[in-house]
């Protein structure tokens, strides 16, 4: 029987949607007993939220002042200590999980599987390699603890409706002081979050400037959509780095993805493969984005986007 420890991602107040997706992934293991661990300075609210996820048997709450910010070097020894009785340790494949989980795996002398997209058995999983161009099925040697990050775009969030017990636990391991949080600059936005939005409008290099990129925001607002960008648009400074979609940005699975002035490089496409409907607007009828788009429109974005906005307002 699989005993799975899921490391919760949160911002101190709310659970990140990735956690519920990890739980769903863990539920794919036969007879899984799922524990969620919440590391925080004060994890009351987050632990309560985690306890409400369907399929969770137990929530472990580890409050320490050092846990006010998610620092891998500080969290890893605590996770490793808690992990002792578990067969699997999962975290979301977000920057939080990607940073933390390998450090945990090394402390546990356990192999890590990154970006798990499907569960075949308790020791056999599927994951993407080569920017999603080769999907491998991997088997972990019997008897080993398995650390994994879960590709959130591959799993639905487990719904609320559970009522697990929350247990406060003390994890008395020495924590390093060599790594200190100095700040985060997050563009505060009222728009939906890129990773969990049902609709996303993305702009590419073709926008030409940060000023022009406002066209993308305009259309996104009209659709109630989150905003994304290609690497070229981020590199050129048209959009913030946290908006990058793709192999090295965010992997997303919205209901609707609108790619505007984006050519469809393989590294970009790997981030949107799981979108339900892809719309592409590009002036080049040969652009590779059209090979994956469900609906394509060839033309100049500077004419099309304002017109679309008008049509959607009417």
């Amino acid at each position: 029987m699989a005993k799975v420890l899921v490391v919760a991602e949160h911002d101190g107040a709310k659970l990140n949607a990735g956690t519920a997706k990890c739980v769903r992934c863990a539920l794919g293991l036969e007879g899984a007993e799922i524990t969620v661990a919440v590391f925080a300075a004060d994890g009351a609210a987050v632990a309560a939220e985690a306890a409400g996820l369907t399929g969770v048997a137990r929530v472990l709450r580890v409050d320490r002042p050092e846990n006010a910010h998610a620092l891998a070097a500080v969290l890893a020894p605590q996770v490793a200590q808690l992990a002792a009785p578990f067969s699997h340790v999962f975290g979301p494949s977000t920057t939080f999980g990607k940073d933390l989980m390998p450090r945990v795996a090394a402390l546990l002398d356990a192999p890590q599987l990154s970006d798990v997209m499907a569960v075949e058995s308790a020791s056999r999983f599927r994951r993407p390699t080569y920017a999603g161009n080769a999907i491998v099925t991997v088997e972990v040697e019997a008897g080993l603890k398995i650390v994994a990050t879960v590709r959130t775009a591959s799993f639905e969030a487990t719904p609320a409706g559970g009522a697990a017990a929350v247990e406060s636990v003390a994890v008395n391991v020495p924590l390093p002081a060599h790594t200190r949080f100095a700040g985060v600059s997050a563009a505060k936005s009222d728009r939906p979050d890129l990773q969990s939005a049902t609709r996303v409008v993305s702009g590419g290099r073709a926008l030409g400037s940060a000023e022009n990129f406002k066209l993308i925001y305009g259309l996104a607002d009209r659709l109630g959509a989150a905003v994304g960008a290609s690497r070229a648009a981020v590199d050129a400074g048209f959009a913030a780095s946290d908006l990058q979609v793709g192999q090295t940005g965010k992997i997303i699975a919205p209901e609707l993805y609108v790619a505007i002035g984006i050519s469809g490089a393989i590294q970009h496409l790997t981030g949107i493969k799981d979108a339900r409907t892809i719309v592409a607007i590009n002036k080049d009828a040969e652009a590779p984005i059209f090979e994956v788009a469900d609906v394509g429109l060839v033309g100049d974005l500077f004419a099309i986007v304002p017109e679309l906005e008008k049509l959607l307002t009417a």
């Binding site: 790594t179 200190r180 100095a182 700040g183 985060v184 600059s185 997050a186 780095s241 946290d242 965010k250």
Partner: peptide, 11 residues
């Protein structure tokens, strides 16, 4: 570069 934006660490 983290999901929320840009984080700064001192190490």
């Amino acid at each position: 570069e983290v999901d929320a934006g840009l984080e700064t660490l001192e190490v």
